[in-house]
């Protein structure tokens, strides 16, 4: 009986204190929605060297290499919009092995999915010297020669950045981006 009482007490407690009426309470967003928003935002905070985008008429190309964790979320974010005066296109590559290396070098921003973990060295080698911003959630990505890694702190998504790698590729990262990130210096 006393357990039932306790249950009842808990139920009453829960109902009374329920914050349901307060609709403006911060809501949680899914992990990959936030990561997709970061990808699109990077376009605003990175300057690519002047470069001819002959096949895409000035579009910014976001490449997703490997098993895509974003799905339609990313497409919805860029659909019908200009970001910093550019159309943004999303290109998907099933895996490194099935992709022409040249098409990776034509991306402005390349997200390397976790499924490509074992091919990481080859992928980074393939885009080396081209102005491609490499982004991944693979652990220790900046140490491996990548540029931006999605990390996590509590329930927040954070960034680990290796600015030297970006610089080598001819990319300029805005100081605003560096301010919110953890900086890796590997050189």
């Amino acid at each position: 009986m006393s357990t039932l009482k306790t249950l009842g007490f808990l139920a009453v407690l829960g109902l009374t204190l329920w914050p349901g009426g307060h609709a403006s309470r911060a809501q949680e967003v899914s992990e990959y929605t936030v990561k997709a928003a970061y990808l699109v935002n990077f376009v605003k905070f990175i300057t690519w060297p002047d470069k001819v985008y002959d096949d895409d008429q000035g579009a910014i190309v976001i490449g997703i290499l490997g098993d895509d964790p974003f799905g339609a979320t990313l497409d919805d974010m860029v659909k019908g919009r200009f970001i910093e005066g550019h159309i943004v296109l999303v290109r998907r590559f099933a895996s490194y092995d099935e992709t022409q290396k040249g098409s990776l070098r034509k991306c402005h921003l390349l997200f390397i999915a976790y499924s490509e973990k074992d091919r990481l060295r080859d992928i980074l080698k393939a885009v080396q010297g081209s102005p491609v911003l490499t982004v991944s959630e693979i652990e220790r990505f900046p140490l491996a020669g990548g540029m931006i890694q999605f990390d996590q702190e509590g329930q927040r998504i954070t960034l680990d950045i290796n600015p030297a790698q970006a610089q080598k590729a001819g990319l300029t990262l805005s100081s605003k981006l560096l301010q919110i990130a953890k900086i890796y210096r590997t050189e």
Partner: peptide, 16 residues
């Protein structure tokens, strides 16, 4: 979400 500042994005609670 793409209109948010970087700081706001960094401050969002996510369902991981």
């Amino acid at each position: 979400l793409t209109n948010l500042s970087l700081e706001s994005l960094a401050g969002l609670n996510v369902v991981v």
